[in-house]
């Protein structure tokens, strides 16, 4: 994403002005303390807190597109920062006892900021649920962005292995069958050769979308490696898994992908294989799946 901070220029300017105003007010009303009067522990505590609040604000603004939830979070964190900032100024500048506005300046923004932040987080939660719904069939139970392949984006082999461990345990606990389908695009290398690797990447993305549309909501699609995908089917026996595999292969064959450069139709096909999980390790199951695929591909290799 291009620099999101640019969209928040107004908010950042306002915060800078407010912090400056606070500083000027303090300087006008009070006297600078001598260095001997500084309480270092307070300085580090309050200064550190203010800096952290600023860092959170930066991270939030940098990672989120502009919008209502972002505004709530930003204003909330801005208030929190301001409150700590004024607190920090106290340590350097002695305000005469007669003046009371500095207490207001220090204490009022904090609860307001925390309220806004809480309200923002609550809405963030709802937003996250909406986004998670889009991740259906791509992730389950746990999220780890480092295990996601950047191209498609689907979970990679490591993500699949972790999910398999969970699902294998669950299926033996609940006495339910668990099946895996592997889908391998035929002759993918020649697509790369003829249309370029960038087109190959687009084919993988298109095929991913196509397969996601054909899956049930409880299924999980992962990209094993290259042009090979695996679907994890909980509570599914081998017969149903075969049907689903055939449907996936047919849907890929019917996907009328057009190349970007000349808009030419690419004819795709895929080989699939299915295995049902026994009492075994994820490693072993994947190995078996792979051999099943190799067998399914065999006649093709001979006829080529």
């Amino acid at each position: 994403m291009p620099n999101l901070l640019r969209h928040h220029r107004l908010k950042l300017t306002a915060l800078l002005l407010a912090a400056n105003l606070g500083l000027l007010l303090h300087l006008a009303a009070g006297d600078l303390k001598a260095m001997a009067e500084w309480v270092w522990l307070d300085l580090i505590g309050e200064g550190g807190s203010a800096l952290l609040a600023l860092a959170w604000l930066g991270l939030i603004l940098k990672s989120r597109p502009a919008g209502r939830v972002t505004n709530l979070l930003a204003i909330g964190l801005g208030c929190v920062f301001f409150s700590w900032w004024v607190d920090l100024l106290d340590e350097f500048i002695q305000i005469p006892d007669a003046i009371t506005w500095d207490h207001w300046l220090e204490s009022a923004p904090m609860p307001l900021g925390l309220l806004l932040l809480t309200y923002g987080l609550y809405h963030w939660h709802h937003e996250q649920l909406a986004i998670s719904a889009q991740m259906e069939k791509r992730e389950r139970l746990f999220r780890e962005h480092r295990l996601f392949d950047k191209l498609t984006p689907l979970g990679g082999a490591d993500y699949l292995r972790r999910q398999l461990e969970l699902s294998l345990a669950q299926s033996s606990r609940e006495q339910q069958p668990l099946s895996l389908v592997v889908i391998d695009i035929d002759d993918f290398d020649s697509i790369n050769q003829r249309y370029g690797h960038a087109e190959g990447d687009r084919v993988l993305q298109a095929v991913t979308q196509q397969m996601l549309l054909n899956l049930r909501h409880q299924d999980l699609l992962c990209r094993l490696a290259g042009d090979r995908f695996v679907v994890l089917l909980s509570n599914t026996g081998e017969t149903l898994a075969r049907t689903l595999a055939t449907e996936l292969a047919q849907s890929i064959a019917h996907l009328a992908h057009k190349s970007r450069q000349h808009g030419e139709r690419l004819f795709l096909s895929a080989t699939t294989a299915t295995v049902m999980a026994l009492q075994e390790s994820p490693e072993n199951l994947l190995q078996r799946l792979n051999l099943a695929l190799a067998k399914a591909k065999q006649p093709l290799a001979l006829s080529a």
Partner: peptide, 27 residues
């Protein structure tokens, strides 16, 4: 690409089996 067929290659490595064995299978 040039021969137009999959050949029965066998692969030997000095290293231990890697974590990302799937990549080896596919590629």
């Amino acid at each position: 690409r040039l021969g137009g067929e999959h050949l029965p290659w066998q692969f030997h490595f000095r290293q231990a089996a890697p974590r990302q064995i799937e990549q080896y299978w596919v590629h």
